[in-house]
Design a protein around this nucleic acid. Structure first.
Lengths: 152, 152
DNA sequence: TTTATTCCCTATGGTTTTGCTAGGATTTAT
DNA sequence: ATAAATCCTAGCAAAACCATAGGGAATAAA
C-alpha cells in the first residue's frame, strides 16, 4: 500500500517544472539537482509524463521540458496515475463488469474497494499543480536556500 | 499502490467470521474452504489479527476463532491496518515531527500526502463489519450456493 | 562544420517484498 | 490414546522496485 518513488519523485519534479511555466525549458539536470534525484532515473519518469501528455520536450542544447498545460489544469491525480498506473489499491473485477468477476453478485468487499478507490481518486484530483506552486512560493518567502533532502 | 493479499484475504476472512459472532468458534479450515484461501497462509493472517486484538482463539479439538469485539465496533480500517501496517501510501517524515524531516519546512508535497493519508483512513474507518455482514446476508437471500471464486 | 548540450531508448542487475509452502510443536475434546 | 485444532518458525521462488549504464539522435551555439 505504498506509493513508489516514481510517484513521489515525479510529483516533486512536476511541481518544480510548474514553477517555470511559460518560461524557458528546464533541463533534467537542473530538476534532478534541485530535487536530489538521480538524473538517469528522472529521465525515465519524464518519459512517462511526456507519454501521458502532461509535459513536452525540447531537444538539443538549451532544451529541456515544459508543461503541456496550465498548472491549474493538471491535478496531482493526473501526475500520479501517469507514473503509478491507476491508484486503486484493489482492482476488483466486480467493479468492472466487462472483466467478468464470477462472484460479483455475492461479493461484499466489492463495495469496500469501491469506496477506497473513489476516495483516493477524488482526493488527488482535487489538488491542482497551481495550488502547490503557490504554497511553495509562500514557503520560500524566507531565505533558506538549502537543497531539499526529503526522500519523499 | 496495491493492497496485498494479506489485506484482501484477511478482510474476507473476518467478514466471514463476523457472520458467526456469538456462536461457536470457527476453524481456519472452514473459513479457508468457504473463501478459497490457502489454510496455511490464512493461519498467518489470523495470527496477525489476533495480535491486534481483533479476534481470539480457542485451541484444541472443536476450537477455532471468534471475534473479540462486537462487529459494529470493528472497522475495515482496524482490519486492514492490522494486516498491512499503516495504510498511508507515503510515510512522510515531515508529517511526524519527531522523526525529523530536514526539509519539512520547505516541502509542499507534505500536504498532498497528508490529504491522501487522511482520506484513506477516514474511508476505511467509516465502514464497520456489522454493515458488511448485513449486506452479505441480503445478497445471499437468493439461492446461489456457488463457492466464492473472487481473488479479492 | 564542429562541438557541447540535451533528450531518447533499451538493457541489466541488485535488493526487497510478496505469497505462499512446509515441518513440527502444543493444546484440548472425545 | 487419538484426532482436531491452533501455534511458531523457517525457507523459497517469483515479482516488483529502484535504480545504473551504454550508446544514439537531435539541436543550438561556437
Amino acid at each position: 500500500m505504498k506509493l513508489s518513488t516514481k510517484g513521489r519523485y515525479g510529483l516533486r519534479a512536476l511541481i518544480d517544472l510548474a514553477q517555470y511555466y511559460e518560461s524557458d525549458p528546464v533541463s533534467i539536470t537542473s530538476i534532478a539537482a534541485r530535487q536530489g534525484i538521480s538524473e538517469r532515473y528522472l529521465e525515465q519518469l519524464m518519459a512517462m509524463l511526456k507519454k501521458a501528455g502532461l509535459i513536452k520536450s525540447i531537444r538539443g542544447a538549451g532544451g529541456g521540458y515544459v508543461l503541456n498545460k496550465d498548472p491549474k489544469d493538471i491535478s496531482v491525480g493526473d501526475v500520479l496515475r501517469a507514473l503509478e498506473g491507476n491508484l486503486e489499491p484493489v482492482e476488483c473485477g466486480g467493479l468492472h463488469p466487462e472483466e467478468g468477476c464470477s462472484s460479483s453478485g455475492e461479493c461484499v468487499t466489492k463495495y469496500v474497494w469501491q469506496r477506497i478507490n473513489d476516495s483516493i481518486n477524488k482526493t488527488v484530483d482535487e489538488i491542482k499543480l497551481d495550488q502547490l506552486v503557490t504554497e511553495s512560493r509562500e514557503m520560500q518567502g524566507g531565505n533558506h536556500n538549502s537543497p531539499i533532502k526529503c526522500n519523499q
